[in-house]
Design a binder for these strands. Structure first.
Length: 558
RNA sequence: GUGCCUGUAGCUCAGUUGGAUAGAGCAUCGGACUUCUAAUCCGAGUGUCGGGGGUUCGAAUCCCUCCAGGCACGCCA
């Protein structure tokens, strides 16, 4: 349990004791204690913690909330709680003011836990899988994939920090219609690049990357495929190009700081018979029926989905949805307690039937969470950059990283709630100025490192310093912020919202900059210097840990 | 037409299971470097929280309705 959680828990216990004491004396009537909140008030002068229980009990106790609050405050035993003042305020809040003693325990703890600081065991023994990006391997990664990568990776890091056992997975759609299309496109380019007339398929992939791939094949193997049977030729071209694309995707993600535990190929589900198996299984449960030559899954039986879905086309080939059912069954068969998919919002219509399918194959659909993220609009010079994958007009992840850098890109993507449409300003992201929020945070870290190396003191230092010398408001505010990290992480993990951490990082940096401008660290007062170095070092550790979760580097100099 | 997401300061966005006087950054204006990194700090102004109704001690948050924008409604993925 974190220091802050511990403080809250002690206060909670004493509040309940105070309630019981009042009840025993007949001053207060109630049945169950309502589920009340101990929260950090928005206003600093409302104390360290505020409790809303009096308002919640008002109706049942048939009393004015302020009166109830007063009864609780009267019986509240401060011993062992760090509380030094209790006040009744507003409509009936009980505000608790703490002495700063507890704050001084935070710094040595942070230095001791070091890179582990902020972690918790909230997700202990829970196996969770995060599947993200899973882009079609027929092209390169675009801005939408980049957002998914930044979000998914931060989420996975966050869950791991909160104690979950996390597996990151990329699902490769290496079969199906789009792959056939890919083959036709490759074939057409192959002929064209060798100087032959060849019609380009109507729904083909126009990207230049396809031409580049074909030219590499020609460079290596020349005209070897010209005389093959068409099927054979396409298959060979696909095999080579697919490997190349997957490698390119993996490299681009690697440059973006994203590494996966598992790369899962859709073809394994076809080859192993898993898809046929799951279809048979569903037939036995009468969840599949035939209509106009195709096989349909009764998704309308489940949840809010109102339409059935084709799983096997009338030509006998399974749809992507059939593979997806088998894939999700496979995930749960592997023992994951919680399966998280990150999808673009354009796939939202698929969520209900996917959950229905999970239920149909015998698992609890509540254990599948689909995080939808809205689409990305790219701006350059104040204008929207239009993107289209089909026509090959788009900025790739690789180009993005080259242009604005990994840190800025990841910070920008993870700064916003996945629910909101993201306007990505390329000019802003690559600006090396105060307008760019990522530098604000990194600069705080670099500043600290500079002080620490100039100090001539050995770290860690907080445990051998008199921390009670830290009395300035800026110092106490900063420690308070550092102490919040474990709770921030636990909450962000629970809500699957890594963007909260970006906010936290910014706030923490802000607290540090204020401290820096108010309090000189390398001062002649040796004891004070040591205490402030302890604070600076704990700030460094906290900042670095958060940035690491977000996939942003923490530079030692800038 | 139906479903999902969004609508908060000039701009980009936060807003914690409903909490107190709705907050940041940028932009604008005024201050602070012979001192540990001025990519910083300090100060100043800005709001019918899209409109309207409802629920309650209390609503940006929950419910209804309307308006605006995005997305999805395929034997595509």
């Amino acid at each position: 349990m974190s220091i802050v959680e511990n403080l809250k828990e002690n206060i909670r216990k004493e509040i309940i004791k105070a309630l019981e004491a009042n009840k025993a004396e007949g001053k207060l009537q109630y049945g169950e204690v309502p589920n009340f909140v101990i929260e950090v008030p928005r206003e600093k002068n409302h104390g360290d913690f505020a409790v809303n229980i009096a308002m919640l009990m008002s109706k049942e106790a048939k009393m004015n909330p302020r009166q109830i609050a007063q009864l609780i405050a009267d019986k509240f035993n401060q011993a062992g709680t760090c509380v030094e003042k209790v006040e009744i305020a507003g409509p009936g809040f009980i505000n608790f003011y703490l002495n700063s003693q507890w704050l001084y325990d935070v710094l040595p703890l942070v230095e001791k836990e070091d890179s582990n600081y902020g972690s918790s065991d909230a997700g202990k023994d829970i196996k969770v899988q995060v599947e993200f990006v899973s882009a079609n391997p027929t092209g390169l990664l675009h801005m939408g994939n980049a957002r998914g990568a930044a979000l998914g990776d931060a989420l996975a890091n966050l869950l791991a920090k909160a104690g979950y056992s996390v597996t990151k997975e990329f699902y490769i759609n290496d079969t199906g219609n789009q792959i056939e299309n890919f083959g036709k496109s490759l074939e057409a380019r192959y002929f064209q690049e060798l100087g032959h007339e060849f019609p380009f398929p109507e729904e083909g992939y126009h990207g230049k990357d396809i031409i580049d791939t074909v030219n590499r094949i020609i460079a290596n193997e020349g005209k070897a495929y010209l005389d093959l049977e068409q099927d054979e030729r396409r298959k060979k071209l696909i095999d080579i190009a697919l490997d190349e694309k997957i490698t390119a995707i993996r490299t681009a993600l690697g440059n973006f700081g994203v590494e996966y535990d598992v790369w899962f190929r859709e073809t394994t589900l076809h080859d192993s018979g898993a898809i046929n198996e799951v279809i048979e299984q569903l037939k036995e449960k009468d969840l599949i029926y035939e209509h106009e030559g195709a096989l349909w899954f009764r998704s309308s039986r489940f949840g809010s989905d109102d339409k059935d879905e084709v799983v096997v086309r009338s030509n006998g080939t399974p749809t992507y949805f059939a593979a997806d059912i088998a894939y999700h069954k496979n995930k749960f068969d592997r023992g994951f307690d919680w399966v998280i998919n990150i999808w673009g919002a354009d796939h939202h219509g698929h969520v209900a039937r996917m959950k229905g399918a999970v239920q149909a194959v015998g698992y609890n659909p509540d254990n599948l969470t689909v995080v939808l993220m809205q689409l990305v609009r790219l701006f350059r010079g104040g204008d929207i950059v239009r993107m289209s994958k089909r026509t090959g007009q788009y900025i790739t992840l690789m180009e993005l990283v080259e242009e604005v850098g990994k840190d800025a890109a990841r910070y920008f993507f993870v700064l916003r709630n996945p629910d909101s449409h993201l306007d990505f300003d390329l000019d802003l992201a690559k600006q090396e100025s105060s307008e760019n929020p990522v530098y604000y945070v990194q600069y705080a870290h670099a500043r600290i490192c500079s002080i620490l190396s100039a100090s001539g003191e050995e770290l860690p230092i907080a445990h051998k310093s008199d921390l009670s010398l830290l009395k300035e408001k800026a110092e106490l505010d900063l420690i308070r912020k550092i102490a919040d990290l474990p709770d921030e992480i636990a909450q962000a993990a629970k809500a699957l919202e890594p963007h909260r951490l970006a906010r936290y990082a910014h706030d923490l940096a802000s607290n540090f900059h204020t401290f820096y401008n108010n309090c000189r660290v390398l001062t002649d007062d040796h004891e004070l210097k040591k205490a402030r170095l302890g604070l600076a070092n704990a700030t460094r550790i906290t900042l670095r840990n958060v940035l690491t979760l977000l996939g942003v580097s923490a530079p030692e100099r800038m």
